[in-house]
Design a protein around this nucleic acid. Sequence first.
DNA 1: GCAATATATGTAGTTAACTACATATATTTG
DNA 2: CAAATATATGTAGTTAACTACATATATTGC
Lengths: 160, 160
Amino acid sequence: MEQNVIDASGLLAISTRLQRLSDQIRKDGLLIYKAFGIDFQPKWFPVLYTLYKKSTMSVVSLSDEIGYAHPSTISLLKELEKEKLIRSKKDKVDTRKRLVELTEKGTALLATMEPVWEVIIKATADITNTQNNLMKAINEVEATLKEKSFLQRAEVYFRK
Amino acid sequence: MEQNVIDASGLLAISTRLQRLSDQIRKDGLLIYKAFGIDFQPKWFPVLYTLYKKSTMSVVSLSDEIGYAHPSTISLLKELEKEKLIRSKKDKVDTRKRLVELTEKGTALLATMEPVWEVIIKATADITNTQNNLMKAINEVEATLKEKSFLQRAEVYFRK
DNA sequence: GCAATATATGTAGTTAACTACATATATTTG
DNA sequence: CAAATATATGTAGTTAACTACATATATTGC
């Protein structure tokens, strides 16, 4: 059981570790879509999946839903528009808003992806089905952080 | 218990979730160092901490240790050299190698950081001390992935 | 002991998120 | 109802990692 210095530093490097794992999973995700012959980038997933489930949304509500800053969403939408997977129109009631939806091509693509998602879900269940479940741990940590931020918690120990 | 579409997609979005959490923790980390009046960026942590523990290392072995691609390490080292926190010299045995070590300033900085780490360790223990322990979950998942990659696992379900 | 291969370092350019700022429209308030 | 404030979208520039490629030195194998 060799261990590197960063692992040994335990909790200190948690952010680094999370990022590394995220990266690894994303890259494998790309390979899986390729293996299925589907022209799809994992980074598109949050936007497309949300539109698939909610049909029409404004830019900001979409950003909130997927947890991205709105400029990130805008640049994804530009890319998806170029791919003709989504389109948008003005909201007639609130003209500030731009309403985004899947095109027929987009809907069709997502339909072909459903079986791939099933495979991904199974493979991910596979890897997270350990003593401490990663998805559950993330959910729990995010809930804990919502209650009281990391900084606020640190401040308590700081004063002691 | 409101839930957004991405959360509801469960395992599919795991990479996105990991990244978001990593970012949040990193930002709070930066605030904590600031609160302690320490001029330090969380991204420096892996390199500096490893040098603190191992004294002298080559660029590639350092990269392996912290799990980064070597160009990432090189650019961190450049930055740290500008800050006069590290220095480097040629290996006399293998002249390809550049040996990196902390300067006195670097060592001094890290010494002042030890109490901050304690606070960070406590605060992180706080947030990860949930039913499913995040650090343990990460360790377990990484070990599982080392055995057999995500793609290889997906391929098994693909064939079924 | 030289040719082929492997390893170490470095540079250039990419990526996918971010923050800060700008502008247009809606909503609220005195 | 006009001024002040809030919200929605968009642009520009930054960041922190990456991959691909280039070069120099070391090691291996015939």
